[in-house]
C-alpha cells in the first residue's frame, strides 16, 4: 500500500452532507475490471454537463462551471473538505480509487460512512474526522482565502493552516502505522497464520457444519 506521512496541499470545499458513493463514482464506471482510470469520472454527474459513460473521451466533455472542483481557484486541490457522513452508500472501493486518482490525498469531514472510511485507509487516502465547529471554521477559512492550503502530519496527528490554527485528530494505531509505513496488511495478517489454523481447528470441533 502507498504510504502517507505528511502532506501539504490546496483545499477544495464540497459543501454538502451525505455525499454518497453513487455521486462519487456513478455505477456505469464500476464495470471496469481494473483498479485505475477512475479519476476523470470522479463526481461525474456533478462535474460534467452531459452524461458520462465508460470509454468516452472525458477531455472533450463540457464541464459544469458551477461545480466547485471546476473552479479555477480549486484546480490542483489535494485536500477535500466536506460535510458529515461522507461516502455513505455502497461498499465500492472505486470511490476512494476515484478520489485518489483525481489527486486527493486526504479528506476532512465531521464524519464518514464506515465502509468508505475503512476503504480509504486501504489505499493510502487519509480520511480525517474533525468536529463540526472545526470543519465550519475550515470552510470559512477556505472560502475567505484564495489558495488556502492545509498541512497534514499523520505522525503528529495534526491538521494545520500554515502559520495559523492546528487541529488534533484521532486515528487508530494500527491504521496509522500501516499508513506511515505503507505496510502490506495481508502480509501482516498472514504473520498470524498459526493462530488462524488453531482457531479453525477449534471451530471445526464446535461447529463442523461451517466447514462442510
Amino acid at each position: 500500500m502507498e504510504a502517507f506521512r505528511q502532506h501539504m496541499g490546496l483545499v477544495a470545499p464540497l459543501d454538502r452532507a451525505n455525499v454518497d458513493t453513487d455521486a462519487i463514482i456513478p455505477k456505469q464506471f464500476l464495470k471496469s475490471i481494473k483498479r485505475s482510470g477512475f479519476g476523470p469520472n470522479l463526481f461525474d454527474e456533478w462535474r460534467y454537463m452531459d452524461h458520462g459513460e465508460p470509454g468516452v473521451d472525458n477531455s472533450r466533455r463540457v464541464l459544469n462551471p458551477n461545480f466547485v472542483l471546476n473552479q479555477d481557484r480549486y484546480r490542483g486541490a489535494t485536500v477535500l473538505l466536506t460535510r458529515k457522513n461522507f461516502g455513505c452508500g455502497s461498499s465500492r472501493e472505486h470511490a476512494p480509487w476515484a478520489l485518489q486518482q483525481f489527486g486527493f490525498k486526504a479528506i476532512v469531514a465531521p464524519s464518514f460512512a464506515d465502509i468508505f472510511f475503512n476503504n480509504c485507509f486501504k489505499n493510502g487516502l487519509l480520511p480525517i474526522v474533525l468536529s463540526e465547529a472545526e470543519v465550519d471554521h475550515l470552510f470559512n477559512a477556505t472560502l475567505a482565502t484564495l489558495g488556502m492550503k492545509l498541512n497534514i502530519d499523520l505522525a503528529r496527528q495534526v491538521v494545520e493552516i500554515p502559520g495559523a490554527e492546528a487541529y488534533q485528530f484521532d486515528v487508530e494505531d494500527h491504521r496509522k502505522q500501516s499508513l506511515l509505513n505503507g505496510w502490506d496488511e495481508i502480509g501482516l495478517s498472514l504473520l498470524q497464520a498459526d493462530k488462524i489454523r488453531a482457531y479453525e481447528a477449534a471451530r471445526q470441533t464446535r461447529e463442523p457444519w461451517i466447514f462442510s
Binding site: R92, I115, N118, I186
Partner: peptide
C-alpha cells in the same frame, strides 16, 4: 457486513 475490494482480497488470502 459489507467490505471493499481490498478487504475482499484480504479475506480470500487470510480468511480474516
Amino acid at each position: 457486513f459489507g467490505i471493499g475490494t481490498s478487504e475482499v482480497e484480504h479475506v480470500m488470502a487470510t480468511q480474516c
